[in-house]
């Protein structure tokens, strides 16, 4: 009997220490949240200007987020603030579950293409003041995930289709012939200049998201992949045989001929790549090429 009693006592003690621990954790959490909010309140008081960040929210797993909705966050404006900065501010001060991709903060990793006030933008290179009238701070900024892509959660979209299209154009340098050993391939400055803009692509997916044709036809290669093909097809180092193969790929049913030259991709490209021009030029190359064999 006595053994049993001891066990029960220990159990009760364990239970109450567990409960105490839970209560402490809860208090810690509340205090932490209060401190972050307090800091935000201070920031808001001190800031000359604030704006409302209206963000799309969705999480298939969380009951209150299953139905897509918009949340709003009041953000204090600081000089040079970007849309990405404001998202990070909201996440770190109001809601740590606010989810978006980002990494380099300098427009090179291509993680944070977003739909900002109805247009595709990179969050990190879009200044808040550029969204207001006459360089002022706007009252509200609306941020949504890239359209025409499946939403994974909040501002994160599924990029798999985009990556598949990039891979479909055999996106790797593959010269007909390579010089021996330490000899480099020669390339003229003009030719390097010709492929320069196409080589700047950061795979952000803004162009694909803006394209009406891609939205209606899931098999269309899309501007980014065609631009990738352009980079190799126009590179004089690869050689004529490979170029021939490349033209065949982009000329297929869902290739360059689907483009309706609406220029929306070119307009939204954060790296200023003349995507539509590149597509048009490949169309011309394809025609010339077909005439050659005619």
């Amino acid at each position: 009997m006595s053994t049993q009693v001891t066990e029960q006592e220990t159990e009760t003690e364990e239970q109450s220490s567990h409960q105490r621990r839970r209560l402490e954790e809860k208090a810690e959490r509340a205090a932490s949240r209060d401190r972050m909010r307090e800091r935000a309140e201070n920031d808001l008081d001190e800031a000359d200007t604030t704006f409302t960040l209206k963000v799309f929210r969705y999480d298939p797993e969380i009951p209150e987020k299953e139905e897509p909705r918009f949340d709003t966050f009041e953000v204090p404006f600081t000089k040079g603030m970007t849309v990405l900065d404001s998202l990070m501010y909201a996440r770190d001060h109001y809601d740590s579950s606010l989810t978006f991709r980002h990494s380099c903060r300098q427009a090179v990793c291509g993680s944070d293409a977003l739909f900002v006030n109805g247009t595709q933008h990179l969050g990190c290179k879009t200044q808040v003041v550029d969204l207001g009238d006459d360089g002022g701070v706007p009252g509200e900024i609306r941020v949504e995930p890239l359209p025409h892509q499946e939403v994974v959660k909040d501002l994160v979209v599924d990029m798999e289709h985009f990556y598949d299209q990039m891979e479909a154009v055999e996106p790797y340098f593959d010269a007909d012939e390579l010089p021996d050993g330490m000899e480099e391939q020669r390339q003229t400055r003009e030719n390097r200049e010709k492929i320069k803009m196409s080589s700047r692509c950061i795979w952000c997916g803004a162009c694909m998201s803006s394209c009406n044709v891609a939205a209606g036809n899931n098999e269309y290669l899309g501007p980014a992949a065609i631009n990738k093909a352009y980079k190799f097809a126009m590179d004089e180092r690869e050689g004529e045989n490979r170029k021939q193969e490349r033209l065949e790929i982009i000329e297929q049913e869902h290739g360059v001929w689907r483009c309706q030259t609406q220029f929306s991709c070119t307009e939204v490209c954060p790296k200023d790549i003349p995507l539509t021009e590149h597509i048009q030029e490949l169309k011309r190359e394809a025609v010339k090429n077909n005439l050659k064999f005619w």
Binding site: Y172, A175, L178, P179, E184, Q187, R192, S199, R237
Partner: peptide, 20 residues
């Protein structure tokens, strides 16, 4: 040799007048 390898993999290096 690693830099030449990158060139052979098609890295778009800036070029001199002689193409190197």
């Amino acid at each position: 040799e690693e830099v030449i390898q990158l060139e052979h993999w098609g890295m778009p290096f800036s070029r001199e007048d002689d193409g190197r």
